[in-house]
Nucleic acid binder design. Structure first.
Lengths: 204, 204, 204, 204
DNA sequence: TATGAATGAGTCTTCATTCAT
DNA sequence: CATGAATGAAGACTCATTCAT
């Protein structure tokens, strides 16, 4: 029995190694510039070995996104668990979202800055997997806004509308900082907090 | 003489057709997934014909950006020429920016949602041409904010910071609506105007 | 009538210009690396214009070789016209042959260092033209040897054999110096004269 | 174990097949006219398969030269091992050089009759590999001449000069016979031996 | 489980050549 | 006479993927 377990563990280890390596490479070089061979070379396995663990290149990305966005959810949950005031929770959550994007620029861009039309010819399951990644977190945003309203710290209003509007603008901060890396931005910390201040201030 | 003119017109037509087709393909499939062959196939010309009009693939995007952003500038200038109140001008300009993106999603995504690292190996001149595209419009945004301050209709503040923050968020609205086309957004008109309202309101 | 003449002269001028330019480029970059466009660019004509003067690329080379080897014949004739002693004439002729090759390395290599099999798919006329270029000069070599024998300054012998043997070795000097340009040869003047000395000495 | 061996053997077979085919094509059509595709077509493999065995086109020629000139060295060593008189050894070595060229016309022409300028844009390592090919044999020629001088069977003199001069002329015999295959040469055996006789005779 | 060999489709680009004007 | 537009074929090379072992 121990043998089977060790094997299963080893198999899982390799799977993770592939995902991690792919993530590193995607960030370094961009999705299109990463080939299966490059991934295989870096983990020192044969390219064909990767196909024992993932259906194809897109399957890697899909799994990567799922795994990564699981982390976003974990981060947001940690903030919730702190039991802070609703507005403070909202602020920290939005900030966590931005930081998360900046920490995982490649995944972020892949999921949120790629027109969905690009996935048209993709196996449906993979497409949905990539596309659905962020939905969980969007739900949390709505919850956060609802909590703030209930606490009376922001104006009453259409939660769906407020959430979408808020997400769009937080997304803009995140995506802009990632994709225009060479733009001469002012101090990023200040830029982010100033923007969040405006965003949250405009909810009152 | 008529012959030469017709020829020049035809040549220009083809040039534009290449640019338009390339733009369509870029948003449909992403920059890296668009090949000279694909462009050629769609316009039903031989791939080599494209090289009669553009030096290489990068030359296409460079021209694409320059041409398109010329239009954005024109639109913004039209608004300025109306001689409206500074705040109204600001509002309309931001709205024009968003509409421009939604009208030219391929160009917009290409210029603003492609991580700059993707073009690392590009000839410098082309790179500058692409990156410089949006700078003109960003300058106009700063002018607009300055005018509002001068008129006392928004709070005094660091114009550079305010402009960058504002751009990031307006960019988020634009990019989000383009790239997440299948997200069940609420009524777009309302979503845009609500967001702009928050954005401008938070400047007072 | 003057008009027609001028036109004919102009046409011939362009023809020569193409040949000269092609020759320059062949020397600079090698036959295969010279394209019709490059020739056209340098003379500032359209590529298609070249086809008004030459059937194709090979036709250029064929004419080039004919023209160039005409010069070899002229040089050899000049030496003959000096009316020197047969051995001196022979020596100077062989030397002229080598110098000619070094002066026109591209043509020389093209005619003498290209396996004839490479011209198999060439229009027969062009092939023969290239191939036949050197025949005239080979005849002169035989004449020269015959004259020396008649004068009793070299051993009697099979003129054809002696001429072929002599040509092979003189060709070796020429071709070797051209093709192995980066070999650390000793002083070329000395190398050539030493070799010719051995060559002629071995005829006595 | 037998499986691995058979596979290794098969892999090596294909490698050799590629080299042989490339050599044939190089002489038939010239270096520039041989494409990876043509090589692949002739061995009835996909072009990409070649890249499993050779880094690029230049890698093929580099290996081609190294492999072939190894054989020349072997032949010359065999002659040395016979322990013959120095002059006899010299004669047989020169003859072996010529025969080697005639036996491997493609390789010979490629290495010695291709102007070095053609490889200007080559990776340095490959370039050195190609150029270094013949150096070993040239060294042996100098040794042979030195031995003859020491034995007093040829005149004293500058060994470097004599060797270069001798090589140029032996090269001429070899290259001339290969490249002018359609020239109506007299009996080749006689032509070669006659020429070698003159060459060696002129060293005394 | 892992892999080495193989491939077909594709990448950008250049070229000699044709033809209507 | 000269040309601009166009093209088909080809260039070297890369890639995701398959499959027998």
């Amino acid at each position: 029995m121990g043998v089977a377990e060790r094997r299963a563990r080893e198999k899982d280890d390799l799977r993770k190694k592939i995902l991690d390596t792919a993530a590193d490479l995607f960030i370094e070089q961009g999705y299109e510039n990463v080939s299966m061979r490059k991934i295989a070379d870096r983990i020192e396995y044969a390219p064909s070995t990767i196909y024992l663990h993932f259906r194809d290149k897109v399957d890697i990305v899909a799994n990567l996104c799922a795994a990564t966005f699981g982390e976003l959810d974990r981060r947001l949950q940690e903030i919730l668990d702190l039991g802070l005031a609703p507005l403070e929770t909202l602020h920290r959550s939005l900030r966590a979202y931005i930081d998360f994007g900046l920490d995982h620029p490649s995944h972020y861009v892949f999921v949120f800055c790629t027109p969905t039309s690009m996935f048209k010819d993709m196996e449906q399951s993979s497409g949905e997997q990539i596309y659905g990644c962020g939905m969980g977190s969007f739900g949390r945003l709505k919850n956060g806004l609802t909590a703030c309203m209930a606490a009376g710290v922001i104006r009453e209003g259409d939660v769906e509308l407020l959430a979408q509007s808020t997400w769009l603008m937080v997304h803009g901060i995140t995506a802009g900082l990632i994709c225009q890396a060479e733009f001469p931005f002012v101090d990023k910390e200040m830029l982010i907090e100033h923007s969040l201040g405006r965003l949250i201030g405009s909810l009152r």
